[in-house]
Design a binder for these strands. Structure first.
Length: 698
DNA sequence: GGAGCCCTAAACAGTG
DNA sequence: ACACTGTTTAGGGCTC
């Protein structure tokens, strides 16, 4: 329950490296998906039958190819998984989107290309596709019947009738085009969602910018465009002919390929607009509500996604098109809205769904792995990563609800985002009573020399400590100070401190006698806590100078920090000492946060105290700012202390305490003056500043 | 092994 | 007398 405990917590906290997940993901053979072949609709045409025959031939050829490659990874599952792709059979399947018969599947299985699970998934996909195709057929039948009826009803002689008939046909074609586009949208949307899901899981890092790789689903056609406009747009497209592979077969063939396509740079980033993350926030694509002005580019992109390297990327097509215009013609003619095209779209949707299922499975696996690993906290921890399992946003939102009504701004909020997981004492999600050390067992110390401020530690875990019966890894002094600082007027009665403890930490809802005694003991023992007689009674405040002095003294590894202690120097030096102490304490945890590394390294360097590299906002983030502002705000332009942390209601009698520290008492009166004069305006400024910081960090 | 820090426990005094 | 508050001392665990 002290700062060492906090380090203990860091020691015990299980850090999950996202790279591990990524690694396991990319190495997992199960991730490799078999592209589901497309069954023909019951309304098979002669061409479909021919195509089916071709498909069988292709399968046979693929099988022979497999048999002729005894050394290939395809036949040897013991080989490296990375060298065991399924591209060959899947590609063969893609050659002709037909049904794979059970016999063929058995053949593939015998060749150890597919696992039984994959086969089962494939069969399920086929069944689903069949059902969907039946629905599609019904839809088309109804559509055609409706059109036919309309034509019959509107049979008028003469030119007018013909024109109307033509109009009707155009309307139908337009409707079909819309339907086709919607199918594509659904397909692309699902792929995009899949990408986002992966990204959420930390599997993919998708740096924004022109170099960002894309998948076909990333360019979404608008739904609000009329068919005529769509066609016109397609005609107007002149653009880029070197596009990203449509990814259809890739994503369907091999999940790792999909992954790679998202993590490596694309050949033509220009033709692949970056993912827009705003669309899937609520699980529904904004495409459906898209404005027309933004539709041109996206519509073009949709077509572009099906065209790459002079080849039509429609599944199973691969027709050579010299230019994009020819490709568009080919697309409209060969891949118009018919049974086959819609079925292929459906299949692609199935592919995406299957990938999503796979993702969910992998996610579950990750959860299990995390839970399992956390059951053994004694194991060496991976390197710290700024991966917070407790949402800082949630924490920030939760703070006001649990804070007293007179605390409009809690100082913990701005520091939340800088908390590395390595400093987290426990992982809330897998907390169990067995992992919660007893009161006495918590006193193991972490080898770290420095501790980090409470606020930045507790803020991200606010909800956790509030609900979990886990002893917070902070000293009583730190907690008391935090409680007082969170108070609007920087003062609390003993009872209010008690309340803060019980309110903030579930752990302190029991063994009241013990920890309350400890609180009283700490309040009396430490000079940084100043008792102030108030009208209502005695309240406790924090002498920030003393607090920083204490912390500075604990820093034994940095003589430059200790030598500037206020006891030996003036107020300016006191500020410097506080600054340096706070810097030393706060910058260390920042090292775990790559985003703050620059600031941390800069502050850890030889820069003079108070001189910050970069903008102050960027440096005095979060806890550091909070730790420092207590000192900064107390100093006026002359370097003297100005009111900041002492009660401002009454001029109280102050009890001077002699803390068992070998400190020069010369500065004690100063600190008392500091605490005796308090300006609420400064508090407000401080809170405002912290609020701004909090907003900046969000 | 000693120093220092922290926690826990307890004794004691003052106050309402 | 009791509860609460505040101070002080003592002892033990832990880390450096």
């Amino acid at each position: 329950m002290h700062e060492r405990r906090m380090r203990d917590g860091a020691k015990e906290a299980l850090v999950y490296d996202a790279s591990l997940y990524k690694h396991s993901w990319s190495d997992d053979t199960d991730n490799r998906m078999l592209f589901p072949v497309i069954p023909d609709s019951p309304r098979n045409t002669l061409s479909s039958l021919l195509s089916h025959t071709a498909h069988l031939q292709a399968l046979q050829a693929a099988r022979q190819l497999l048999l002729q490659q005894p050394g290939s990874g395809l036949k040897s599952p013991k080989n490296n998984d990375k060298q065991r792709p399924l591209q060959v059979p899947v590609s063969v399947a893609m050659m002709s989107p037909q049904v794979i018969t059970p016999q063929q599947m058995q053949q593939i299985l015998q060749q150890q290309v597919l696992s039984p699970q994959q086969l089962q998934a494939l069969l399920q996909q086929q069944q689903a596709v069949m059902l969907q195709q039946q629905h599609l057929q019904e839809f088309y039948k109804k559509q055609q019947e409706q059109l036919h009826l309309q034509l019959l009803q509107q049979q008028h002689p003469g030119k007018q009738a013909k024109e109307q008939q033509q109009q009707q046909q155009q309307q139908l074609a337009a409707q079909q085009l819309v339907f086709q586009q919607q199918l594509l949208q659904m397909q692309q949307l699902q792929q995009q969602q899949h990408l986002l899901n992966m990204q959420r899981q930390g599997l993919l890092s998708l740096p924004p910018g022109p170099g960002q790789p894309t998948l076909p689903g990333q360019t979404l056609p608008p739904a609000g465009l009329s068919p005529v406009e769509l066609q016109q747009l397609w005609k107007d497209v002149t653009g880029n002919h070197t596009m990203e592979d449509n990814g259809l077969k890739h994503s369907g063939l091999d999940l790792s390929t999909t992954n790679n396509s998202s993590t490596t740079s694309t050949n033509n980033p220009k033709a692949s607009p970056p993912i827009t993350h705003h669309g899937i926030s609520n699980g529904q694509s904004p495409v459906l509500n898209h404005q027309r002005e933004s539709s041109l580019h996206e519509e073009t992109g949709a077509a572009q996604s099906l065209y790459g390297h002079g080849v039509c990327k429609w599944p199973g097509c691969e027709s050579v098109c010299d230019d994009f215009g020819q490709f568009l013609k080919h697309l409209n003619s060969e891949h118009a809205l018919d049974d086959r095209s819609t079925a292929q779209c459906r299949v692609q949707m199935q592919v995406v769904q299957q990938l999503e299922i796979q993702l969910s499975k992998e996610r579950e696996r990750l959860q299990a792995m995390m839970a399992h690993l956390h059951m053994r906290p004694s194991e060496p921890k991976p390197s710290p990563k700024p991966l917070n399992l407790v949402s800082s946003v949630t924490m920030s939102k939760n703070l006001p609800s649990v804070s007293p009504p007179n605390l409009p701004q809690t100082p913990t909020t701005p520091s939340a985002p800088v908390t590395p997981l390595s400093q987290m004492p426990q992982v809330p999600s897998v907390l169990s009573p067995a992992n919660v050390p007893s009161m006495g067992a918590m006193r193991r110390r972490h080898p770290d020399k420095y501790s980090m401020p409470l606020s930045s530690e507790i803020a991200p875990n606010y909800e956790f400590y509030k609900n979990a019966d886990v002893r917070p890894p902070f000293t009583y002094a730190t907690l008391i100070r935090q409680a007082i600082l969170e108070a609007g007027d920087m003062q609390l009665t003993l009872n209010e401190i008690y309340s803060w403890f019980t309110r903030t930490f579930a752990y302190f809802r029991r063994n009241a006698a013990t920890w309350k005694n400890a609180v009283r003991h700490n309040l009396s023992l430490h000079k940084c806590f100043v008792r102030v007689e108030n009208v209502k009674g005695a309240v406790w405040t924090v002498d920030e100078m003393e607090y920083q002095k204490r912390r500075s003294q604990k820093i034994t590894g940095s003589p430059t920090l200790v030598k500037n202690l206020p006891s030996s120097l003036g107020y300016g030096a006191a500020l410097n000492a506080s600054l340096q102490a706070a810097l030393a304490e706060t910058s260390l945890p920042l090292l775990g946060n790559p985003g703050l590394m620059n600031s941390a390294s800069c502050m850890m360097g030889a820069s003079p105290p108070g001189l910050m590299c970069g903008s102050p906002t960027g440096l005095l983030q979060g806890s550091m700012h909070e730790d420092l502002n207590g000192t900064l705000d107390h100093l006026d332009t002359n370097g003297h202390s100005s009111p900041g942390y002492s009660p401002h209601t009454q001029l109280p009698p102050i009890h001077v305490k002699e803390e068992p520290l070998n400190m020069d008492d010369d500065d004690c009166p100063m600190s008392l003056i500091t605490t005796a004069n308090h300006s609420p305006e400064l508090d407000e400024d401080r809170e405002l500043e912290e609020g701004n910081l909090s907003e900046d960090l969000e």
